[in-house]
Design a binder for these strands. Structure first.
Lengths: 169, 169
DNA sequence: TCCAAATACGTAGGCGCCTACATATATGTC
DNA sequence: GACATATATGTAGGCGCCTACGTATTTGGA
């Protein structure tokens, strides 16, 4: 039924995406079922600001290992929702300093028990799946050492030009 | 630097998505570097048609474990590119029967060595990451047994209503 | 001191998937 | 054989991320 298990390498990206869609979708349904107005993409930035205090777009992108563009869009959404505020960094006008608003602090407090439940569910799932998180760590590390692009080009019968994938870090 | 490793459960979806983005992106760059006009999302449908012959939208969705909507959109893209053709199933006019065109067959032949390289690279990556594919299998199975939604709701302090996540297929 | 290069952030538009809803055809029951 | 229900596919629009490119500010030689 699930042919992707037999499709091997070329499908591994699709499989990862599929599982992430399931998890994201279920998380979205949890917030909806509890009547909480919350977007999945807010989590990283919000959690980061709650744990470590004010930060710039670039710092958040680096910590979350996503692009600054994605953080920038999330910031706009968070500001529109009144959860986060921002101002130009007085020491460097290129930077934007993000902080939680009072509403933001309250939202984080309200969500904390839910995030705890997430954590427990993830631990349970992780145990069921034979330490999936450790595997994710190893996958991250392996890709950081040598990107899939470089691996494929190195294997290709006729390697073509010497182009290389951009670094991910 | 990568805080997501410490963020635990609530970030697992984001981490999976992130890795899938890296892999998808590298795959896209490989096709681009070789000058091949190919979209990532074509792979599942194309590979399935090549391996098992003509199939309907629903059959492909089921085999690939994605929604029929996604397959429908991919079909339109493949038809526009002249790689796939379709006709109403004579036995059931609701169904659409997809087949590879001659161009489609040629494209699959041209891509076969590349997909082989993908496969080798994935095997290498898989070995580097301590059998990530087996972990993905277990994750699939664990989520099929009990969705993340159900796991979270079961753990929540005040479980709220008796709603449940829809089955995944 | 001036100006090229680097850095920080933003906008436009795309990708591959999704949910919600609409349409067309088939099926089963009275 | 008519009609409610089930099934197969499609359309509209959203999500969270991306690349490509543009603008504003800072930095570091010549």
């Amino acid at each position: 039924m699930d042919y992707t298990r037999g499709a091997g390498g070329a499908a591994i990206g699709a499989r990862l995406r599929r599982v992430s869609e399931w998890i994201d979708g279920d998380a979205t349904r949890v917030y909806a079922a509890l009547g909480i107005d919350f977007e999945q993409r807010w989590f990283g930035v919000l959690n980061q600001l709650a744990q470590r205090g004010p930060a710039s777009v670039g710092e958040l992108a680096s910590a979350l290992r996503i692009t600054h563009v994605s953080v920038s869009q999330t910031r706009q959404s968070l500001e529109k929702a009144g959860i986060v505020a921002s101002e130009a960094d007085p020491a460097d006008a290129r930077r934007r300093r993000l902080t939680l608003t009072e509403d933001g602090v309250r939202l984080v407090e309200r969500l904390t028990p839910l995030w705890w439940a997430f954590e427990q569910a993830a631990l349970e799932l992780n145990a069921d799946a034979g330490d999936a998180v450790a595997t994710l760590d190893r996958l991250d590390d392996a890709l950081a050492r040598k990107s899939l692009f470089d691996r494929i080009i190195a294997i290709m019968p006729s390697p073509g030009s010497g182009t290389s994938a951009p670094p991910r870090g």
